[in-house]
Design a binder for these strands. Structure first.
Lengths: 241, 241
DNA sequence: TCAAAAGTGTTTTTAGTACACCCATGG
DNA sequence: CCATGGGTGTACTAAAAACACTTTTGA
């Protein structure tokens, strides 16, 4: 019963942090933003950007602050992913972490560079490499958190319009399709994708502007903005193997 | 950068609790398990069952313990819902709560009573009433948490096999259908539902047994057990209005 | 023999897939 | 004038929805 709740002043102090899985699309692949730990434990290892929650600060607020402080990024979308609190996950003391999932528009445009604006200790790492334990050792339980974040992101692309959060303010349908193709690592039929997106009311709204063609020509593409819809009905399916 | 992480020993102590949205189907409606607060703050108000996390205890572990202590229920499914940590959500001091979502098989069978095994201070309340602020005042931010939990449950029925977590070990397809109809408050065509469920491999497995017909007759129905599948592909859609 | 619930069959409608083909641009 | 990517048309296929109908039970 509720009477087993003791007063907070009696309680063991648990440290509370926020950590963020920050995803973006670059070089045609889904990439995660990682920082290198400057201090023990796990000194020198890659980790998710994160930090402690301040006393008078909300959790979302702490996540925004940490992303700004550590990486300077402004996500197009930020949502809570889950809370990880196994005793022993931090070797120093009991710390539970509230993990966030952030989608960031491509930092250097399609096929651009690796995001030179990032701090020296931060890097974009393809999730395929970041999740390969032989090539990347992540601190704490961050492998698990990143795994969960990537799976959440892949699955949310199916039934929400969040793919637009990976795109700049204005984007072409090819750019939007590239988000799905990179995140799911599968190719999508362009004509059918176009029809599907345009048939889903509120997914994208046309701006009337045209994008300049790429260096190798091609018809100038229509530019779109993200629409008001959040949930897609029906979803954009990935081909589960 | 990660250097802004201070050592845990320097940190303000935040209280950490778990609260549970416990859902079940009874009287043809989705119902939530609430407890009456015996002490201030919000003395006498209805609240989600919950309690503080112990020092050496994992979060999931704390959720199972609290459910057992406060309500004596053994959920068929328990998952994390989200973490709520606005400063001021607890008038006493800074407390963040990790909310869980639990699905419990019908306590008294279909159309049964209101679950007489519950403690005196606990009650099953139809979510429609529990979420109506004019009829039910919930403590803390539990209105918000319950809202989120109910929406998560409704949506998870679509793309997972979790509807079986509301059913007893063995169940008929009508019982399973009743879960969807109660949770979504809409009727489902029985023949099509049957085909859909049976066509989804791993959703249910036949036991070969037959259920006794109801008091008003009818053909005895096949009994099924929950299958191994977790995600349904394709989903069972609700008709979004 | 009637009502009620389980279960089957069949038609209609809708949505997804594959792919041929035309359009506008840069080299 | 050819390669490249944008965009349209259309036939084929799979799945969802609607609903008529048969089966087996209790009263």
């Amino acid at each position: 019963m509720a009477s087993t709740r003791r007063r907070p002043s009696d309680l063991p102090a648990l440290g509370v942090t926020v950590d963020a899985v920050v995803l973006t699309i670059a070089q045609g692949a889904l990439q995660a933003l990682l920082v290198q730990r400057p201090t023990p434990p796990f000194e020198g290892a890659w980790a998710l950007p994160g930090g402690f929650v301040n006393e008078a600060e909300g959790l979302d607020e702490a996540a925004w602050r940490v992303l700004d402080e550590e990486t300077g990024t402004r996500p197009g979308h930020l949502e809570q992913l889950g809370t990880y609190g196994e005793p022993g996950r931090d070797p120093r003391s009991r710390v539970i972490t509230v993990a966030y999932l952030a989608f960031v528009p491509e930092l250097g445009g399609v096929g651009g560079d690796d995001g030179g604006e990032l701090a020296a200790t931060a890097a974009l790492v393809p999730v395929r490499r970041a999740l390969d334990r032989r090539r990347t050792a992540l601190a704490f339980d961050h492998h698990r958190i990143l795994t969960d974040g990537v799976e959440r992101a892949r699955s949310k692309l199916e039934y929400t319009s969040l793919a637009t959060a990976f795109c700049p303010k204005q984007f072409t349908l090819s750019q939007l399709r590239a988000v799905y193709e990179a995140a799911w690592d599968q190719s999508i039929d362009a004509p059918n994708f176009r029809r599907k997106v345009l048939a889903t009311s509120g997914f994208v709204t046309p701006t009337g502007r045209l994008a300049a063609p790429g260096p190798e020509g091609g018809k100038p593409a229509q530019l779109y903005r993200a629409g008001r819809a959040v949930h897609l009905q029906p979803p954009v399916y990935r081909h589960h193997v």
